[in-house]
Design a protein around this nucleic acid. Structure first.
Lengths: 339, 339
DNA sequence: TGGAGCATCTGGAACGTTCCAACCACCAAA
DNA sequence: TTTGGTGGTTGGAACGTTCCAGATGCTCCA
């Protein structure tokens, strides 16, 4: 144990001198090579522990020409969505003998750029971008330096892998669920220009058609925020015929819808069923009990890690797009319509 | 731009050869030294851009004997509390010319240990631990290698700085607020063994005494989870005299309380006022409209960064404890008692 | 005309590892 | 007794920077 911080951390050479062997032997031991006698191994390990030796990753990165680190740039830590994604990445990466290090840009393009640059300068072996808002050119530039995958957001760039959930299928599941309960007048409040809003809307429309309910299709403009749901619901309430069920673009907006219905003294799901998307903690809370669609967040993270690791080891040139299937989570906000 | 990933990233030497100058000059330019002629500067910068040169942080760390990186170990990304804290850290650290890199341990001591080790091996210049659940000895060991600060959790270790909010004062503010509204029968549902539970309880008791309400003190056992609030509220309901207000250990537990009151058809705040702690998104949501106590999360992060940076540059030996003042946020879950 | 002084640039050592070729004992087989 | 392995160990080069002491060439003044 080295209590005095003014002195430099011990190096492999300090350990070697302590034991009276060469630095090479210490290196061999630290890396767990098996061409070492048990005696030397123990002596080296003891000395290393005594001195508080820690390998210097910077030096290792230099000489090995790789860091065994995967960089993760998280655009927004406030979004609980990423917590599970990161957990999936971290788990998979660790299993493969790599380590994950993260930076964040807080949804500010300039800061995200810096966050990615930091990772690149540290010479990470792979890069995961979690829903970047970063300028496209910078993403492409990064992907030229190191294998890169985007998770949670689709991309058109030909060199970049991506992992997303199947928003369209998720939306179809919602409609199927509602139809099964007996609903026909099912409206949609969309997510405006948000990521994933369009495919969710498309899925809604397709499923309605499939169920021969094209005449009941009713889609109004909303957003991914609480007031988007609020505004959308008010628009629907202003119409002559009320829907018996509403599929809202995401959970947060769905909460906005619930509030409006609360204020209007409409019962959920008695008068109207409500469905969100994303299965956030908000939806899971007993108070909301919101039926929603669960993105396989952990698996998405794991998949991102696997794509990166595979790209590192095989040097695959073509991009891969993983699209994972979401899952409907039925709760108390949906039920059969009053007949 | 270097499109082919099979070749190594360009080094300072490649840039030097391209221009026909020495590596030293390139180094000077990259670091923005002013003893360089404008002509050389431009030539070097152009060549660097053309080749897609990025400084190698590992090499820099080696020779400079410092990384200009601050490591942040986040115990739990699921807790939205940390998003703001990290943002504060990131902002302050960036302003000072450092970069923040993060790892996470997902509340698993073993993984947190690894997360800290990763940072230490990367030779970060300072370490921030966000509510670690890590074994104490490992924290102490880390603090011997590098300046360390714990944020969001108190510590007794003499070498370690910490940043917390003043839980006791926060609790007192809650009682003051309720008393001001006219309440006297104010109960408390505590956070069990959770971090910060004890000082919140103490603050409640002290404030009650200060208001000459010692006879009204009523504190029951709960936890920091939804069912803790649930159980605590049921215990209170089982008693003969209902309180007119309840101060719950945190927001999540307070949501549990709201649910029970909902189920019992008791009006909030008409029949009973409810207060939480932490000002999470849950509390802010219109549906809950929960009066709560806001920890200055961003400032806590900033303070943590400042403590670290100061410790790095001054090599201060003694520990510092920063205790920041929280703020009461009054919402719709509190009001005057029915008289 | 000869420096002094200045602006600009340069070569080499150092940082802490890994990896490779080589070395050393020692033993078994010829 | 030599030869050939084999298990264990070693020294030196290399990785991409920074930093330092010095070199170079110019201008300006005595």
């Amino acid at each position: 144990m080295n209590g005095d911080r003014t002195m430099r951390p011990p190096t492999i050479l300090d350990v070697a001198n302590e034991v009276g062997v060469s630095k090479s032997l210490v290196s061999l031991v630290m890396r767990g090579s098996d061409g070492v006698s048990p005696m030397s191994r123990k002596a080296v390990l003891d000395a290393a522990a005594k001195l508080g030796y820690r390998p210097n990753a910077a030096a290792q990165t230099m000489v090995r020409q790789r860091s065994y680190a995967i960089g993760v740039m998280v655009s927004d830590l406030h979004n609980p969505f990423f917590a599970d994604v990161i957990d999936g990445i971290d788990t998979a990466v660790t299993e493969a003998g790599y380590r994950a290090i993260m930076t964040t840009g807080n949804r500010v393009p300039e800061r995200e750029h810096l966050a990615v640059a930091t990772l690149l300068e540290m010479r990470v072996d792979g890069l995961v971008l979690a829903s970047p808002v970063l300028a496209r050119e910078h993403v492409v530039a990064a992907s030229q330096a190191v294998p890169t995958v985007i998770v949670g957001k689709a991309t058109r760039a030909p060199t970049i892998d991506s992992v997303t959930n199947d928003d369209r299928r998720g939306a179809e599941m919602v409609v199927d669920h509602l139809v099964e309960l007996g609903h026909r007048r099912i409206a949609h409040i969309d997510g405006g220009l948000g990521a994933g809003a369009k495919p969710r809307r498309t899925g809604y429309i397709r499923a309605m058609r499939r169920h021969r309910l094209e005449s009941e299709i009713r889609s109004v403009r909303g957003s991914f925020a609480e007031d988007g749901g609020d505004a959308g619901m008010r628009a629907l309430l202003a119409e002559s015929r009320l829907p018996t069920a509403v599929f809202v673009a995401n959970d947060l907006a769905a909460i906005g819808v619930l509030e409006v219905l609360d204020a209007e003294e409409l019962d959920v799901p008695g008068d109207i069923s409500v469905v969100g998307y994303d299965n956030t903690a908000l939806a899971a809370s007993h108070r909301s009990g919101l039926t929603t669609v669960d993105q396989p967040r952990h698996d998405m993270g794991r998949m991102a890690a696997e794509l990166i690791l595979e790209k590192i080891s095989t040097d695959r040139a073509t991009a891969r797009r993983a699209v994972l299937l979401p899952k409907l989570v039925a709760r108390e906000s949906t039920g059969p319509p009053r007949s």
